[in-house]
């Protein structure tokens, strides 16, 4: 299925069903991050229960420390 992540199309395998799995797939699970799913900001505890489907729009922002 194809979703949009940070404005760019992304093809994800059918095995990825929720936000938590997507974050792992993108190898972002160790980062402190904030996810917006179809214009709704998700608290971290909602990542597992939030399903993703074709055409969903996600914005993912992670915190970095450099300066």
């Amino acid at each position: 299925m194809e979703i949009i992540v940070n404005g760019d199309p992304l093809e994800v395998s059918e095995g990825i069903t929720n936000i938590e799995e997507l974050i792992q797939e993108l190898r972002l699970e160790k980062k402190s991050l904030i996810v917006e799913h179809n214009q709704t900001i998700l608290k971290k505890e909602k990542h597992k229960e939030t399903a993703i489907s074709e055409g969903d729009r996600l914005e993912i922002v992670h915190f970095v420390g450099g300066g």
Binding site: N6, G7, D8, I34, I41, V61
Partner: peptide
Amino acid sequence: KLIAFDLWKNQQMELKVASL
């Protein structure tokens, strides 16, 4: 907003995070 970007990937993100 929480503003982030990746200049190399040509991405810009802006999140309204007031609810957090």
